[in-house]
Write a protein that binds this DNA or RNA. Structure first.
Lengths: 219, 219
DNA sequence: GCTGGGCGTTAAGGTTTTATCAAGATCGTC
DNA sequence: GACGATCTTGATAAAACCTTAACGCCCAGC
């Protein structure tokens, strides 16, 4: 999906030559329709669309599928790239780009998506999180009871184990788009999770803060 | 592409002897046409063209491809070199130059362009940068914790690995357009990164200074 | 040998971000 | 409608960070 005909054409030619099936669109609305209709393995999205903001498109797609999304942006659009990644994009390529680079990222995206049988149980030295059963057990045997909100927050962090998750991303996933800036919620709930899970809540071992960026589940 | 016949001839002879396919031009317009026609792996561009400014040529090429561009300039044309790099050139060589140096930079440019940046993980001998997880691990196993600003700066440099990134570009990406001239910030933050990443911060191996130009992530 | 510019280094001030606590509002259930 | 649990909100203290300025170094040019 791209609003520049020349790029769309070049991509179509290159990808078709490599035996990809390609369908294209030149604005957000028809792009969303095409994704719903064709169920592609990957989506390539230019952030400069004529009719709507790129992040809106991403959210539209993420509402019902985890199809990998690769974003195209021009040099210097750092904040828009970050917004796109926050909204759920998987990777980005800066224009102008070499076809080789795009193809490499495309392959990587497909590979990641097809080999993602996420592990339903995650263990640390002090507790075990069972994502399927929605259950947390401390290593001494006690079950930890979490509220709905606490669980949702923990689940997002655990599913991204080792990865930094931005505040915006967490707020969006747990509280919804409207709460993107309410970082107070995060502090309160991260503190509650720490009190329930960490051996020493004041010196977190698993629920780590990355100041200015977000949180990370490590261990 | 060069307006001095003797240099063009010397380059052609040397490069052809080393099994490169060479096509030449002596002004900007025909140079652009040649790039479009021949799709070279690398472009060598002299900044002193008769018909148009070198940066115009760079922008013309960058509009549709990321083919590496190596700039030739005479000594003392600092500002023009910077402008060329800002416009999207990959590297520069100052005239008069040794053929060995040019060949080395040429090989480096080709290698960079063809090595697909498949994985969002970049490793050096001393540390590993995981761009997706926003995580830096030292080879001895310790995680390095970076602040938001430090991380952004490192990310830009790593994504342009081996390539010279101008001060202006860095400032623009990390601090925004309004800070284009605050090169003080760069010194402070590059120093901090070196202290955290380099085995010997006072003799950088990876975060390299290009005096008057910018910085380069090598290794 | 002096001077000036660019770079590296350091430390302190002020600001922003985070942790913690507690009280009020809301929700679901009985 | 009452109760308990949960969620929201606000206040305050603590920590981390960004910015700024000063100083020393090195190199090039005079």
């Amino acid at each position: 999906m791209d609003d520049e005909p020349s790029i769309v054409r070049a991509l179509r030619i290159n990808l078709t030559a490599r035996k990809y099936e390609v369908s294209t669109a030149t604005d957000g609305a028809s792009g969303l329709a095409a994704v719903a209709r064709d169920r592609p393995d990957v989506m390539i999205l230019d952030l400069g669309l004529p009719d709507m903001d790129g992040t809106e498109v991403i959210r539209g797609v993420r509402g019902w599928t985890s199809t990998p999304i690769i974003v195209l942006s021009v040099w210097g659009e750092e904040s828009r790239k970050v917004a796109a990644l926050d909204a759920g994009a998987d990777d980005y390529v800066t224009k102008p780009f070499g076809m080789d680079e795009l193809l490499a990222r495309l392959r990587a995206a497909v590979r990641r998506a097809s080999s993602a049988p996420d592990e339903p149980v995650v263990s640390t030295g002090h507790f075990t999180v069972d994502l399927a059963a929605k259950r947390v057990t401390r290593q001494d045997g006690d079950d930890v009871s979490l509220t709905h909100t606490e669980w949702q927050l923990l689940e997002v962090l655990v599913r991204n184990r080792g990865r930094l998750v931005t505040q915006r991303q967490l707020l969006q996933e747990v509280w919804g788009t409207a709460y993107e800036t309410e970082s107070n919620y995060l502090r309160v709930y991260v503190a509650q999770l720490r009190r329930k899970l960490e051996p020493e809540p004041s010196q977190p071992r698993y629920l780590l803060t990355e100041p200015g960026m977000g949180y990370r589940f490590g261990g």
